[in-house]
């Protein structure tokens, strides 16, 4: 059975528990569900929020391509990804990856692969809103994120 892939880009918060319940619904062959949630940090109290910009259309398309690659590598039953845009407050969720499979290893690996590629291939950019009201800067891409991809090659 082909992997069910669902990708949503939205400004609204999401309900992680509901997403976990949804991914296994109607598929009695799912034995493992792995989730990753990415939250907005305050960077030692200096950040008030993040503003996330995205490339509409390409953001969905690129995450879908990454999910399709993951589904070719591991026997996963379903992959769901939600990524938010707009203003995200401290502690709020930014991204959710849910991976479902028969056995746990495929779901763990696919979720990790998806996040590694999403970080430096999905067209999103973070801008800082600072607590002190000063002009925030764009968050720089990290070399470590780029290197994280190379281990899958």
């Amino acid at each position: 059975m082909p992997c069910r892939i669902a990708v949503r880009i939205q400004s609204e918060p999401f309900d992680t528990a509901a997403e976990i319940a949804d991914i296994g619904r109607g598929d009695s062959d799912v034995g493992a569900v792995v989730t990753f949630s990415g939250l907005c940090r305050d960077e030692a109290g200096t950040l008030a929020a993040l503003e996330i910009e995205h490339y509409p259309g390409m953001a969905e398309a690129e995450i879908t391509r990454i999910a399709e690659d993951a589904a070719e590598r591991w026997p996963v039953s379903a992959l769901s990804v939600i990524h938010r845009h707009g203003r995200i407050g401290i502690g709020e969720p930014i991204v959710l990856v849910v991976a479902a499979s028969r056995h746990r290893q495929a779901a763990f690996s696919a979720a990790e692969y998806l996040m590694d590629f999403l970080k430096s291939r999905a067209p999103f950019w973070k801008k800082e809103h600072r607590v002190d009201g000063s002009a925030g800067s764009w968050v720089d891409a990290k070399e470590a994120d780029e290197q994280a991809i190379s281990r899958w090659e």
């Binding site: 996040m115 970080k119 430096s120 291939r121 999905a122 067209p123 999103f124 973070k126 720089d140 891409a141």
Partner: peptide, 10 residues
């Protein structure tokens, strides 16, 4: 054609 800085998603 889209032109943009290195991405910082996730």
């Amino acid at each position: 054609i889209g032109l943009f800085p290195p991405m910082t998603g996730g």
